[in-house]
Amino acid sequence: MSASYTAVGWNRQKKIYDWVIAGLCTAYLTLFALLTLIFNDQVTLETLIIRSTSTLAVLLLHIILAIGPLCRLNNKCLPLLYNRRHLGVTMFSMALIHGVFSLFQFHALGNVNPLVSLFISNTNYSSLPAFPFQALGFFALFIFFVMAVTSHDFWLHNLSPGIWKTLHMFVYLAYFLVVMHVMLGVIQYENNPVLVIMIFTGMAALTVLHLRAAFREHRTDSQQFSKQLEGFVCVCDVQDIENGRAKIFCIDKERIAVYRHEDRMYAIHNVCKHQGGPLGEGKIIDGCITCPWHGYQYLPQNGQSPPPFKEKVSTYDVKLIENKVWLNPIPFAEGTEREGALIKN
């Protein structure tokens, strides 16, 4: 028996996702440009480009940052997550257009190099009202650039998932820089409070979503297990886990997914090697535990991705006593074969 694999490529779902992104961006840019040209017709082309792309980038950034916690709160949002990096690259592209046009508009044709001018023109770093907000935008754009160029899985594998994930967590620093870029920049020029209200609403929404998701995870993580026997911890009843699915238990600060597959119970480390997705929220498909985030797969009996893939996660011992599931939280080396616990009917 053998299996063959083909690259996922731009499959139908990816195409739909990208068409939706293109539709959203086109709709926004067209609407913004048309309304500005109709109701504020003295605008210059440069300003129109700078403003439409920047506001779109900020809006996309909020959507991108909301997807993570939304998926943790509601599995139905997972289709938004699969190609989130496409949304990220699109957001970076908009921010880049904004940045390049701004750099040319405000710093080119002067007596110093535009990139030097960006840092030496306004040096009032000690004054909040006069703060050089453009430098904040530059650093945010730099972070987005690094994230965009490393968004492909090639970089994830070469940098290692840990470094890659850490690198991409800088998006929160970039978000802070963007907020300050707006608050210390254009908001000090505009009289209408709509932009301030939108920024604060966006910040509040993201904060609430992240806190709710964190609270939910904390509730799972703080579950106490009182019964212990020879290193095993009693975690649940057998019927609590439906076939092909898992429950996640946090013991000694490690999340472990206990899966029920056919007539056996298996336990593996909950964190996917790809991007840290929660394997315990996945499903067994074709005999493999499938990560809900990007569909990475692992065999339940050894935590190994089926060949030719090489990802491996730790496995754990499980045993059943009467109707209870007992889990030993001491991990075996990644990819270690465990026979699982036989469910007796």
């Binding site: 709709a27 609407l31 500005t36 504020n40 210059t44 300003t47 403003r51 020029y189 709509v194």
Partner: peptide
């Protein structure tokens, strides 16, 4: 969301000279 944000921001910009 895109329509609402785009419309608000476009219409409420300060008038250009």
């Amino acid at each position: 969301l895109i329509a609402g944000v785009g419309t608000s921001l476009a219409l409420l910009q300060k008038r250009f000279s």
